[in-house]
């Protein structure tokens, strides 16, 4: 049997979508019918979301069934060369670190400390974390730090200035 790529992920997604669609139908069914306002029942707020819920559930079922027939429960062959495996690990590290830094900036820093400061800290840390090499010599490291500091300073000055003074936005 030929196994499609992502077949197991598709099975899980299909099941989630089916459940999501059914939940949407239930929620739509429970929406007010506004009978007390004597509205036409065809204009009830739940009509369209209910219909979309049915379609999404149906598409989810089709996706899940297709994955089952394509061998979702069969062993999934993974054949990566050592270089590719190392690159995959490095890619995951970069993704994880980038997600963490972005989350901290958007949720923890912005709105809780001055925007210019949040931006400066984020840009500085981001560049340092991703440019840091353990085997860098001291002058190279200092040059990288200087670049990171310069870009962070520019970002923390120009972006807030442009939005606050030129576009008259009250910054978070």
């Amino acid at each position: 049997m030929q196994t499609r790529p992502l077949v197991r992920a598709d099975l899980v997604t299909g099941a989630i979508l089916a459940a999501f669609g059914l939940a949407a139908v239930a929620e739509s069914y429970g929406m007010p019918r506004l009978a007390e306002r004597n509205i036409n029942p065809w204009t009830a707020p739940g009509v369209v979301p209910g219909m979309l819920g049915v379609i999404i559930a149906l598409l989810g079922v089709i996706l899940a069934s297709r994955s089952l027939f394509a061998g979702a429960f069969h062993p999934q062959p993974v054949a990566l060369s050592p270089e590719d495996a190392a690159e995959q690990r490095a890619g995951r590290w970069r993704l994880g670190m980038c997600s963490l830094l972005c989350f901290i900036y958007a949720v923890v820093l912005v709105g809780h400390i001055p925007f210019w400061l949040a931006t400066g800290i984020f840009v500085l840390i981001f560049i340092i974390v991703f440019e840091w090499q353990a085997n860098d010599e001291q002058p190279v490291r200092m040059r990288k730090l200087a670049f990171a500091g310069g870009i962070a300073l520019l970002a923390a000055t120009i972006i807030p200035y442009a939005f606050q003074n030129l576009f008259l936005v009250r910054l978070p």
Partner: peptide, 12 residues
């Protein structure tokens, strides 16, 4: 060096 600045613009 580019992506953190892009992300800041995406937020603001």
């Amino acid at each position: 060096r580019l992506m953190p600045v892009v992300f800041v613009l995406c937020m603001i």
